[in-house]
């Protein structure tokens, strides 16, 4: 069974603040890493390959530096990967990102299963997987806890749906999004790192797509627009208490009493 996993490079830290005076973003460090949720998706793919054969490739959209996460996936066990990278993709929202990835996926070899992680740690939306499936006209399912069976071009998955666990069957090819923390992802292999072949990492851009209309990508292809960014508001009407432990305990007690939380 041939699998493609969609992965993303995310900032290594989420410590971003807005300078209240200038409105400029302040970022601590520039390190980036493979989105942690994608590790579970990659591990699931490797396990399915081990059980049923086939191979896993990855796709990532981002700047040229995103090649680093594709390499990491290859060290984990993927056979190769593509980075979809083009300045004209800049500023893409969920819809434009999903469309771009769906165009990139059309340029990959045939696959039986697409796997996405639950969400990314920088965007936190968890929506791109479902939108890719819609653009590719594939069935999809989110919050997958386990793949129970693959037989006769059908897959049985266990899904975490709010108040219940649902087992359902859908036809291949399809797209599944893993739930968080469903397995223990393997570490990158040293041997695979030594054997890495640059040819297994390929960059593609808008010129390689079927749809080359620039207005469908990046900021132009994004229905949503960020009007402004601002630091979270502070509560101006707070009351502060200082003093000894006993005094402060009495202050808290008085507050709880006043608001009828204690008699």
């Amino acid at each position: 069974m041939d699998i493609i996993v969609c992965i993303k490079q995310v900032p290594g830290t989420t410590n971003v603040e807005v300078d209240p005076l200038t409105g400029v973003l302040i970022r601590d460090g520039v390190e980036s890493k493979l989105n942690p949720y994608d590790l579970f998706a990659l591990e699931l793919a490797m396990q399915l390959n081990a059980a049923d054969g086939g191979q896993t490739s990855v796709i990532s959209m981002g700047p040229p530096q995103a090649g680093a996460v594709v390499r990491e996936a290859i060290f984990m066990g993927a056979v190769g990967g593509k980075v979809v990278s083009d300045r004209r993709f800049a500023g893409a929202d969920v819809l434009a990102t999903s469309y771009t990835l769906s165009q990139g996926l059309r340029k990959m070899a045939d696959f039986d299963l697409l796997i996405c992680g639950k969400q990314t740690t920088d965007g936190d939306t968890g929506q791109v997987g479902a939108e890719i499936a819609e653009f590719l006209g594939l069935p999809h399912i989110g919050n997958v806890l386990a793949v129970e069976e693959i037989k006769n071009r059908e897959i049985v998955v266990k899904v975490n749906l709010d108040s219940s666990i649902v087992r359902q069957k859908l036809p291949l090819p399809c797209l599944i999004c893993t739930d968080g923390d469903i397995n223990t992802p393997r570490l990158p292999s040293y041997r695979r790192k030594k054997e890495f072949n640059e040819a297994s990492l390929v960059f593609i851009s808008l010129e390689d797509f079927d749809d080359k209309d620039e207005s469908h990508y990046g900021l132009s292809g994004s229905p949503t627009q960020v009007e402004r960014i601002f630091p979270p508001e502070k509560n101006q009407e707070k009351q502060m208490f200082h003093g000894s432990g006993t005094e402060l305990a009495a202050n808290v007690y008085a507050l709880l009493h006043e608001q009828k939380f204690v008699d």
């Binding site: 819809l95 939306t125 929506q127 479902a130 939108e131 989110g142």
Partner: peptide, 23 residues
């Protein structure tokens, strides 16, 4: 933004070719 809502909303938004803002 339940698990069901997060699965369904993006699918519908993509079909309508419109934006979707999470959470």
């Amino acid at each position: 933004a339940t698990n069901l809502g997060r699965t369904l909303a993006p699918r519908v938004a993509a079909r309508q070719r419109t934006g979707l803002t999470a959470d």
